[in-house]
Design a protein around this nucleic acid. Structure first.
Length: 115
DNA sequence: AAGCTGACTCGCT
DNA sequence: GAGCGAGCCAGCT
């Protein structure tokens, strides 16, 4: 099975998350309005094709790690300097928010002002 | 076609 | 903050 355009868009964004920074599934979904992207779709895309991107930088909106992958994620995050207490991380302070400009650069047509 | 599932969220308690 | 229920929607059986 090949990644759908939406999956590609999700992967492109995740691949651009700076080391040591975090984003939530919902954040990514909000960045891709034209892909009918929902938090669940983001999770699904990472689940299938996340092997090549830093998927551990994507956490739940509450700043907790997804239970299924919490252990791996914790190891990766700590390795790059992110503090993890239990299943929680400081999403509010480490959240990464790319500007519309950066968004355009990583995913063509991600943000459309004219509509 | 109908039903289930899931690396999610949000509003309420 | 933690627990619960309901909503969500593409993909699979």
């Amino acid at each position: 099975m090949n990644p759908s355009p939406r999956d590609e868009a999700v992967l492109a964004v995740v691949a651009c998350i700076p080391r040591g920074r975090l984003v939530s599934y919902g954040d990514i979904a909000a960045m891709l309005p034209d892909w009918a992207c929902t938090p669940r779709q983001v999770a699904a895309a990472l689940s299938r094709y996340g092997g090549g991107v830093p998927w551990w930088r994507v956490v739940q909106s509450a700043g907790t790690l997804a239970p299924q992958v919490a252990q791996d994620a914790t190891a990766h995050l700590r390795a790059e300097g992110v503090e993890v207490s239990g299943r929680r991380v400081a999403l509010t302070t480490l959240r990464w928010q790319p500007g519309a400009q950066e968004l355009q650069a990583m995913v063509p047509g991600a943000d459309r002002p004219d509509r």
